[in-house]
Design a binder for these strands. Structure first.
Length: 490
RNA sequence: GGCGCGGUAGCAAAGGGGUACUGCAUUGGUCUGCAAAACCAACAUACGCCGGUUCGAUUCCGGCCCGCGCCUCCA
C-alpha cells in the first residue's frame, strides 16, 4: 500500500487515486529564461521516480509538466540580450530537454507551454470576476485573496499573519496588498495577448491552474513541485481553481526538498548554483542521478565534493559486481537451483526478499534511499558468495545471476539508474576524470606498459616504483588474472 | 515575528516503542610477488538537550537549543 506525504494535511496518507487505476499528476516545470541548475534536476528526478513507480504499481498515469514561457524574468532577459522572447524560451526549453535526457528523466505525457493556453486562462479569469473573486484595475486583473475563505490551507498561513508580514509594494492598484495578479497589462514593446481587459499577459499562477485542470480535470490526484512553490504559487493555484468552480483542486500535494551548497539553498539569486550541464560534465549523469536519489526526495541534500565522490563510489561498487557477474554462465534450466551451502542460502534469501524490500521502501513515500539499502545488502552477499564459489554448484550460480538480473530490471525501470554496461560506465568515468584532473591518458598507458615489461622480467622493484609513481598521479591500477592491467583515477 | 522541515556513528543517509539498512572513511585480517578489488572482524555505551507517558523510547508527548527554508522571483 503506497503512502505519500501530503503537504495539504501534513501527514503521510494512503494513496488512493480519484479514479481507480488512473493517476492524474501535474508538476510545475521551469521558467525558461536561463540554464537549469541541479535544483531543477532534483525536482525533475524526484517526480520522474514518482511517475515511474506509479506506473510500476500498474497505474495508468497522465503526467503533465509545464513550461513557463512568458513572465517578467523572460521579458527582462530578452531585453538585456536582444534575443526575442520566443527564441529565448525555445532555446532554454530545448536545453532543459537535453539535460533531462542525459539524466534519464522520462518525458511526461504532455509538456504544455503557458503561451499556448492563453484563452483558457482568460476564461478562468473571467469566471473569477463573475464569482467576485477577482477585479480589474488600471494595471491588470487581481485575485481578491480575502474572498477565498480557505486561503492559506496549503501553506498553513493565516491571512492576518501574512498581512502583517507583507512587504510594501509600489505602484499597485490592488485593493489589498495580498492580492496577486491574474492578468498584467502590457507596457509598450512588451509581448501581449488579447483579453477583455486589454492587451497583456497572464500572471504566473494562473497558467498552472488553467493548464492542470484543462488536461486533468478538477480535482486531480497529485500536484508536485519544489518546496519553495508551496507559497505563494501553489496556494494561489488552489485559490484560483477552487474560486472559479467550487470544486476541490487537487488531492495530494507533494514537494521536493532543495539541493544545498554549503548548507544553503542553491538558487539563481544567491548565485551559488551549478548548472546541470556543468555537473554532468564533471561527474557523470548517472552519478548525479544516483546522488539525487540517495536521500529521500523531501529532505534537503547537500552538494559537496565528498558527497558526490561517495555517490560515485557506491555506483562503482554496483558496477564492479556487474562486472564479476558477467563471468558467470547464463541460466539455461527452467528448474530453480537449490541452495546448498550456508552462503548460498543466505544469498538465495536475500535475492528472494529483494523485491519485497524494494516495494516496502518505495511504498513509504518513495523512499529511494531505503530501496538502495536493500540492494546493497544483496550486493554484499553476492560478493561473499562469489568469493566462496570455487566452481561448486554451477546451476545455483547461474540461477542466482538470472534472479539478480530480473530484479535489476525493476531498479532500472523505477529508479532510472544502473542502466549502463559496466565497461561503458567505467570508460565514461575514466574519461571524465582524466579531463577534470587533466591527466594524460597516453602517458598513463605508456607507464603501465613499462611496468608490464618490468614485471614480465620479474623486476618487481621497478614495477612497484612505476606503480607508486602512477599512484602519485592519482592513478590506481588493478592487475587482472589474465595478465592485463586496468586503471582508474582516485 | 508567523508558518514549515530537520538534528541518527568521522562523513552521508534509512529506520522506528524492545537496543540501530546502507555507501564512504579508519584499524586489523584473508587473498595477491606487492598492490587494487572482494570478503571477514573491529568501530555509535543507545539516535541535539531536558522532562513526561510506558515494564521499556532513539522511536510517542511537552519544553528548550541549534540548523535550514517559506512569508518578494525561485525546483
Amino acid at each position: 500500500m503506497l503512502k505519500v506525504y501530503n503537504s495539504l494535511t501534513q501527514k503521510k496518507e494512503k494513496f488512493v487515486p480519484l479514479t481507480d487505476k488512473k493517476v492524474r499528476m501535474y508538476v510545475c516545470g521551469i521558467t525558461a529564461y536561463d540554464s537549469c541548475h541541479l535544483g531543477h534536476a532534483r525536482a525533475a528526478i524526484a517526480f520522474d521516480v514518482v511517475y515511474r513507480y506509479l506506473k510500476f504499481l500498474g497505474f495508468q498515469v497522465d503526467y503533465i509538466r509545464n513550461y513557463t514561457d512568458i513572465d517578467d524574468k523572460i521579458i527582462n532577459r530578452s531585453k538585456e540580450s536582444g534575443m526575442p522572447w520566443k527564441e529565448l524560451t525555445g532555446r532554454y526549453i530545448k536545453e532543459y530537454q537535453e539535460d533531462m535526457q542525459s539524466l534519464n528523466v522520462l518525458p511526461p505525457t504532455r509538456e504544455p507551454r503557458a503561451t499556448e493556453h492563453i484563452p483558457h486562462m482568460t476564461k478562468a479569469i473571467q469566471k473569477l470576476i463573475e464569482n467576485k473573486m477577482a477585479y480589474a484595475s488600471q494595471t491588470g486583473v487581481y485575485y481578491s485573496v480575502r474572498s477565498f475563505k480557505d486561503y492559506g490551507k496549503l501553506s498553513h498561513k493565516k491571512i492576518e499573519e501574512l498581512e502583517s508580514g507583507a512587504r510594501i509594494e509600489i505602484d499597485e492598484t490592488k485593493k489589498d496588498p495580498l492580492d496577486f495578479a491574474l492578468w498584467k497589462k502590457a507596457k509598450p514593446g512588451e509581448p501581449e495577448w488579447e483579453s477583455p481587459w486589454g492587451k497583456g499577459r497572464p500572471g504566473w499562477h494562473i497558467e498552472c491552474s488553467a493548464m492542470s485542470t484543462e488536461y486533468l480535470g478538477q480535482p486531480f490526484d497529485i500536484h508536485g513541485g519544489g518546496r519553495d512553490l508551496i507559497f505563494p504559487h501553489h496556494e494561489n493555484e488552489i485559490a484560483q481553481a477552487e474560486g472559479a468552480c467550487a470544486k476541490s483542486f487537487c488531492k495530494y500535494f507533494l514537494h521536493n526538498g532543495f539541493v544545498n551548497i554549503d548548507a544553503e539553498k542553491m538558487s539563481k539569486s544567491k548565485k551559488n548554483f551549478k548548472t546541470i550541464k556543468e555537473v554532468i560534465a564533471e561527474r557523470d549523469a548517472e552519478v548525479v542521478r544516483y546522488f539525487l536519489i540517495s536521500a529521500h526526495y523531501g529532505s534537503p541534500i547537500d552538494f559537496t565534493d565528498r558527497n558526490m565522490k561517495d555517490a560515485r563510489a557506491a555506483l562503482d561498487r554496483y558496477y564492479l559486481l556487474q562486472q564479476r557477474l558477467s563471468a558467470l554462465p547464463d541460466f539455461k534450466s527452467s528448474k530453480v537451483a537449490k541452495a546448498e551451502s550456508g552462503v548460498e542460502k543466505e544469498l538465495a534469501d536475500s535475492l528472494k526478499n529483494l523485491p519485497k524490500r524494494f516495494q516496502e521502501a518505495m511504498d513509504e513515500d518513495f523512499n529511494t534511499a531505503g530501496a538502495l539499502g536493500g540492494l546493497f545488502e544483496t550486493i554484499r552477499l553476492f560478493n561473499k558468495y562469489l568469493d566462496s564459489l570455487q566452481g561448486k554448484n554451477p546451476p545455483f550460480a547461474s540461477w542466482a545471476k538470472s534472479e539478480w538480473e530480473k530484479h535489476q530490471k525493476v531498479f532500472q525501470d523505477v529508479l532510472g539508474v544502473f542502466v549502463s554496461k559496466p565497461e561503458t560506465y567505467f570508460e565514461r568515468l575514466k574519461k571524465i576524470h582524466a579531463k577534470v584532473h587533466r591527466v594524460d591518458v597516453a602517458l598513463i598507458e605508456k607507464k603501465i606498459e613499462e611496468r608490464r615489461q618490468a614485471r614480465h622480467a620479474k623486476d618487481f622493484k621497478l614495477g612497484d616504483e612505476i606503480r607508486n609513481e602512477l599512484l602519485k598521479m592519482g592513478v590506481e591500477i588493478k592487475d587482472k588474472p589474465d595478465g592485463t592491467t586496468e586503471w582508474h583515477l582516485r
